[in-house]
């Protein structure tokens, strides 16, 4: 089974460009209805299907996303 992952989104620096949403293989990310202090709809997690592949973080122009992935079981 794929290892589980998780992401931390720095919503204040997100510009709502949606590039990460397109890049995610598991549809983990979507735009919030809320906006940040700059008025951008920011990205949020909408499910727990993250596998920690870091695709979203690699293509985010604004380095908004930090990615974690559980270690392989010994």
């Amino acid at each position: 089974m794929a290892r589980k992952g998780d992401v931390v989104i720095n919503i204040e620096s997100c510009k709502g460009c949606e590039v990460c949403i397109t890049a995610c293989p598991n549809q983990v990310l979507a735009l919030s209805n809320e906006v940040n202090s700059k008025g951008y709809h920011y990205v949020m997690k909408v499910n727990s299907a993250c596998v920690g592949c870091a695709n979203c973080a690699v293509v985010c122009p604004d380095a908004v996303i930090t990615v974690y992935r559980e270690k392989r079981k010994q």
């Binding site: 998780d6 920690g52 973080a57 380095a63 974690y68 992935r69 559980e70 270690k71």
Partner: peptide, 19 residues
Amino acid sequence: AENNIISPENLVYEKTSVL
């Protein structure tokens, strides 16, 4: 379970400090 994943030893990608 998700909360356990977010811990320093599981970090796989963060913004480089060269930016």
